[in-house]
Simulated scan of single mutants.
Amino acid sequence: MQAAGHFRALTLFAESPDSVRGSRQMVGACLRDWGLPLLIDDACLVVSELVGNVVHHAVPDECLARPGNARRVDITLKMWPKWLFIGVSDEDSTPPDLPVGEVMSPDLAVEFSEAVLPDRGRGLFIVHRLVDSVWWSPGDVGGKTVWCRIDLDCGSGDRSA
């Protein structure tokens, strides 16, 4: 039986060559510990895309930038009885290019993927397709957090139903 809720956090640095792999390992270990093994593949892909966006695109706000310092990436996992939340925070307050609703029919995406996929934001498009909700929030002193919610099926972590 699962407890009422769980929380885990990890801080990485974007310049580390292991930042994306480390984020996936932490997410996989948490979800195994929390009895949600069926979510591991999707959640690891989601966190890979979000951390990869920080690594490749985030530029720290002037108030957070320190010459010579690495860019901080904070990963938060929260599980409640009906939801899993994944948050990836960075030091860049520029809003992410989140897809708005269904960008295209999934049937068209299979046949014409190169023609219909956007030139940018593909990682967030993938994230949007794997989770139940995506949003972002500004940080208190700069930066932002991109949040994802995965709805759990009666707490079992089985999304195949």
Rank of each mutant, 00 (worst) to 15 (best):
P138M: 12
L10R: 11
V134Y: 10
C148I: 09
L38C: 05
A3K: 05
H57V: 06
G28Q: 03
G142A: 03
V103R: 15
P67M: 01
F7P: 08
V27H: 03
F125N: 11
H57T: 04
E62M: 11
E114L: 14
V127Q: 07
G52S: 13
P106Q: 04
R122M: 15
E15C: 01
S105F: 07
R66C: 06
Q2E: 11
K78C: 12
V88F: 02
L39E: 15
H128M: 11
V110D: 10
R159P: 04
V51Y: 05
E49T: 05
Q2R: 14
M26L: 15
R24L: 10
L50C: 01
R24D: 02
F112C: 09
V134E: 09
I75T: 09
D107C: 00
S137E: 15
G139F: 10
R66E: 11
C154R: 15
A65W: 09
T94R: 12
D74I: 12
L45Y: 00
L130C: 03
G121S: 05
D90M: 07
K78P: 05
L84N: 03
A109N: 11
P81F: 03
M1V: 11
S105M: 11
W135P: 00
G22K: 00
G28C: 04
L31V: 02
L31N: 06
